[in-house]
Amino acid sequence: MTVVRLDLRHLISGDRQANRVVPPSGVTAHLTIFAAAAMAFLAVFAMAMSLAAGRLAARWGDELAQSSTIRVVAPADQIAAQTQAALGILETTAGVAFARALDEAEQRALLAPWFGAELDLQALPVPQLIEMIEEDEGFDAAGLRLRLAAEVPGAFLDDHSRWRAPLVEAAGRLRLLGWISALLLGASVAAIVTLAARAALAANAQVISVLRLVGATDRYIAQAFIRRFSLRAFGGATIGVLCAMIAVAILPGASEAAGLLTGLSFQGWHWVLPLFIPPLCALVAFLATGVAARRTLGKLT
């Protein structure tokens, strides 16, 4: 660890000459920078997707977890009685914190998107909805269903967890996929830098042998390559991250009916997270080049 820290300090302070002893390498340099930029760009999106999926999962999981609905479907003259009966049952059900029948105005508001605001509910066989809020421990849905079936034949329990659970799971998976993508992108940076560093070391075999002959240590030689590739990875990743952050910033903002697509942008302090990508990229390049250099140099006399 101390070795890494020392090397890092050396890397940042720099050594003009150590950098000069390896000839400049044109195209390879540009390719490495480009690859780092592209990977960083993609990593920002993977990160944004993960965070958005995480927010979605949390919202679906928490906000909706506590509420359920009971539908009372009955002939018009019985509906009030059955609603009262159902409320009575709910009052005596363990785990139900609160239950109330929606009033006519609320029901109309729910249906307005489909039937228009001028709807006369009396004219339609519309079920009565009862909203209920659970206590934290939840309630026994199967037991409640049985009691309702026995005592209030027109009442049906809509347990939200039935349709919610797969969505929460899907959002969780999406988040996992996002992080796996970010990891794979990091590994790709390591692979690309390793290949580029090996190519550079092979192309500079004569330079390395001259340096050995005049008394350069492996560390000095490796440093010249490590510094170069770390800076390239850092520079490339910085470009990629900045482009991706601009792209994310001009995405349409999160709307009221926020789904995954509209809520993709970073929120609050999450804007800081992409800024960690360039140093991380540089660290990956630093380690990858170090390994490649030590391998190659170890084989020489």
């Binding site: 000069r20 002893v21 000839p23 400049p24 330079v207 042998s209 001259v210 005049v214 000095y220």
Partner: peptide
């Protein structure tokens, strides 16, 4: 053998630098 991309003076000074 020398480092062909560095000048003669830099090559001669190379042992000092490394």
């Amino acid at each position: 053998q020398f480092l062909d991309h560095l000048s003669v003076a830099e090559n001669i000074a190379l042992p000092l630098d490394v």
